[in-house]
Amino acid sequence: MSNSLGAARQRQQSSPWLWPLIWGALLLISVVAMASAEPLFRWIEPDARQVIYGRADFYVLLGRHLLVVGIAALVTIIIGVLAGIAVTRERGGDFLPLVGQLASLGQTFPPVAVLALAVPVLGFGTLPIIVALMLYGLLPIVRNTLTGLQEVDPDIKTAAHAMGMTAVQTLRQVELPLAAPIILAGIRTSVTINIATAALGATVGASNLGDPIISGIVNGNMAYVIQGALTIALLALTVDSLFEVLQRQLRSRLSTS
């Protein structure tokens, strides 16, 4: 019995890493070896003077892209999860309806408009795109944190209370672990959307993987656009498949414990 269970779990654990590895490897190849694909891009753009985007190395652009998305994600996760926890406590309950509405309002603001409104206040560069990404990515995290915490069975919370757990202990040892898969799903949606949206930052002078795309559109060079789009799509797929693995591990840990 335990043997077959173990084998099944092993099969489950050996396969999930496959897709992140494949996408990650493709991403790495595309970043390092973009220049060697010159014949291919030359075929797409026979008349262009230059077919490989050369103003910055692709791994530098990738790093900056990851940095922007990472900072935005970190801040969003901290704010979103803390806000979700705060309004589901008894004291913050008054704020619950407003925060729920506010989070859905955040997604109504188009990122381009937020970006444009942030520039006069924050100046050109990386800061406005981080703000736009934060506002846009907040909804899925807050919404899922609220759903996750509210779906925890009240009987379980009562049991924890009856066992003598304090409110903080109940939150950390009962509610958050139970809500974790749903919260993680929200973080996954938020980050995946933001990887694509971050490309917009190139229009306000933030240097990232959107740069080749903008420069390609402006100069009418299709090869640049493809290079930028390919790298961003591969990055999104890599991160998304990583989250998939994380979610599966979390779920299997919950079901075994």
Binding site: A199, I214, M222
Partner: peptide
């Protein structure tokens, strides 16, 4: 789902040629 991972900026650009 795959279409959504392509940045909007890029999709606009990719359709030009």
């Amino acid at each position: 789902n795959f279409l959504q991972t392509i940045p909007s900026l890029a999709l606009f650009g990719l359709l030009l040629a």
